[in-house]
């Protein structure tokens, strides 16, 4: 889902509970702030979309998805979202911090990228990755 360009990262994350359950802004913003602190990305809270780096944009989008505690989270071709970092360790470190919010997470990536996930083979479902 696209971020709103004229809202800060914090407001973009808070917008989800505000829209889904008509939560008051202050409560939603507190919830968004707690998530940002958990990921260690709280310094970017005031940045708007054009000022965000790829990693920061990824984290904002991830937290937007996570804040509504979805049953499953699907990340489609993460390399496209994180071109500036070695993305498997970065992504897994983010997801590990979100375990209280997530039941299940699926990452869809090309078969030839499988080697990149080798260090994380304690996640058996990775074998299911489709080409």
């Amino acid at each position: 889902m696209p971020l709103r360009a004229n809202l800060s990262a914090l407001d973009n994350i808070a917008l989800i509970p505000q829209y889904r359950s008509n939560q008051k802004y202050a409560e939603a913003a507190d919830q968004a702030w707690a998530l940002l602190v958990e990921t260690g990305f709280q310094d970017m809270h005031a940045k708007r979309d054009p000022a965000l780096s790829h990693s920061e944009r990824f984290v904002t989008k991830l937290l937007r998805a996570v804040i509504s505690k979805p049953a499953i989270l699907l990340i489609d071709r993460p390399a496209m979202l994180l071109p500036e970092v070695h993305y498997p360790p970065f992504m897994f470190s983010m997801l590990e911090r979100m375990t209280t919010y997530l039941d299940d997470c699926w990452i869809v990536d090309y078969q030839w990228n499988r080697a990149l996930y080798d260090a994380h083979l304690d996640y058996p479902e990775l074998d299911q990755a489709q080409p």
Partner: peptide, 15 residues
């Protein structure tokens, strides 16, 4: 108008 719409409208007016 719900909480989200109000926030977005306020931001839009600001900008």
């Amino acid at each position: 108008y719900n909480s989200a719409t109000r926030t977005v409208v306020m931001k839009q007016i600001y900008f």
